[in-house]
Write a protein that binds this DNA or RNA. Sequence first.
DNA 1: AATGTTCCCAACCGCACCCAG
DNA 2: ACTGGGTGCGGTTGGGAACAT
Length: 295
Amino acid sequence: MGCKQMDKSKPKQKHKKGLWSPYEDQKLKDCILKHGHGCWASVPINAGLQRTGKSCRLRWINYLRPGLKRGTFSTDEEETILTFHGMLGNKWSQIAQHLPGRTDNEIKNHWHSYLKKRMPKLAENEEGHARTYTSENGESSPYSSMKLASQNSSKMDSFERIEGSLLADTDQSVSANNEFARENCKSNFPKVLFSEWLSLDHFNRQDFKVITSNQDLSKNNIGCNDSMFQLDTFAQYGPVLAMNEVITNEINRDFNNMIQQPLKFEDQIFVNDFEEFISREFNRNVDDVHINYIF
DNA sequence: AATGTTCCCAACCGCACCCAG
DNA sequence: ACTGGGTGCGGTTGGGAACAT
């Protein structure tokens, strides 16, 4: 860690609280777009904001970060929340990893506002043949047996494929899941895939190559045959981005300048920069440059 | 229209964890 | 081994919008 930009000799500033103004948002956004966030404690100083680094981080993650979905949750998203809440309990950040563009805070709020209230109904439907599932913290989820029973659903399939080895190795699937989630948080599991302007149908071993800050990995070609979820094979390679090989060589230098460190979730801002960069440099409509998030 | 109540969401708070010194 | 700073997470709260009376 070690935030070298911090000036510890500075007298304690009175930090502003409460809602963020559009002006503050812009300042924070500009600052992070320009410098990245690096050490959050230094962000308010760099941005000239009278906020704590913690507050800046929260504002960025929950509101300003590119790629965030706003608006109401789809039925599919709600289903996902219910499914993973049944498995993980109140592990909002882990649940959020399965809902691209949604934040843990948003999911948590949605849960308390809507989904929790639906639980009694779901539980009623389950009455009589409920096999209560107990999460790691001892919470029982009356609806989770239903969810667990639906492990053949596509969502569960994809989840299990990603976590397959762990789940297969133990009958303590809950702890395995949590262990995986912990590891997943710590690891540099690929967070983003540039599919560029090709559809995923074009996604194959020839078209794509891995770019990484790790030189040892940069030689590897990694691809997949048909679906996004086979990208779990990427996991073993650490931080990766995949993109059309046609543009790879041309942008490699600029890309490496942009990303000096392994990717973190918050580094999606660089992705956004990169998207603009591609569209500008290669005369593509920015709408045709697609980014797919992998969780 | 005025007032009271409920609901939702953004943001804060406190704690745990990690890591460098 | 200990300490202190930074980060991330989950619980909670406060304010404002929407709704009811």
